[in-house]
């Protein structure tokens, strides 16, 4: 087996570190967008009546059918033609990833909301709260605590899917790794380093969320 050298990595370390930062930003922003979409869609599906449930179910199931790659490419190339305005790669990346992940987030949140006991809603309404107040102050917080493990694994998805944004040239970690690998002709060291970087990002997230959940679980059990 040929030798392994480190200079391709160390030589471009600032470049790659910048790329790692972009990956983190991309993951966090898409997660935030997905969460916003997920709360609205999940709550509307749970409390909004049958018609809304079916209509939004269409969005959720469609995102289960269409690959992230396709959503990203469409968002960057086709969507600007609809709105008459071009998008920069990072924006397109966040929107594409966020809208796709939002469907999974909505399902998670819906499961969390329905897992809270009916009596909690009754108790909140009995105090004179409106449904929206009850959902906001009583049901949703409990549901979120219960959903922490699932939210953690969705965040891991967000980080992994961020790598797909490389196909629309977002300067995240995979893309920049390809650039450096192309320049230095040492793919092994660089791609392996990239694998390690993603592993070190994702593996602790899942574990960390589990730990936090165990400490908070009693706040979510009704």
């Amino acid at each position: 087996m040929p030798s392994i050298v480190l200079w391709p990595i160390t030589g471009s370390w600032q470049f790659l570190l910048q790329a790692l930062w972009t990956t983190i930003v991309l993951s966090v922003l898409s997660m935030v967008l997905a969460f916003a979409i997920g709360v609205v869609v999940g709550a509307l599906r749970t409390y909004g009546g049958r018609v809304l449930d079916l209509a939004l179910g269409f969005y959720v199931d469609s995102m289960r059918a269409i690959p992230v790659l396709v959503v990203l490419v469409w968002t960057f190339f086709a969507f600007p033609l609809v709105i008459g305005h071009s998008l920069n790669v990072l924006t397109a990346g966040v929107i594409g990833l966020g809208v796709h992940l939002g469907a999974y987030m909505a399902e998670t949140i819906r499961a969390g909301l329905t897992s809270v006991r009916r009596g909690q809603m009754w108790a909140a309404l009995a105090l004179g709260m409106s449904r929206i107040q009850a959902i906001r102050t009583i049901i949703l917080p409990q549901a979120l605590i219960r959903m922490l493990p699932a939210l953690g694994s969705l965040f891991v998805f967000a980080v992994k899917d961020s790598a797909i944004a490389s196909v629309i040239a977002v300067p995240e970690l995979l893309r920049q790794t390809q650039v450096v690998a192309g320049n230095s002709f040492r793919p092994f060291e660089l791609y392996t380093a990239a694998m390690l970087a993603y592993f070190l990002l994702c593996f602790p997230i899942a574990r960390g969320v589990d730990r936090i959940y165990r400490r908070l679980a009693h706040l979510g059990s009704s």
Binding site: M1, P2, L174, P187, F188, Y191, M195, C202
Partner: peptide, 24 residues
């Protein structure tokens, strides 16, 4: 298992594609 679950598939495909012929 933990490794393949915690890293992106797209990167795994690249890795297999570039690394196998060159190094193995």
């Amino acid at each position: 298992v933990e490794f393949f679950r915690a890293t992106p598939l797209i990167l795994q495909i690249y890795w297999v594609y570039y690394v196998l012929p060159a190094y193995f």
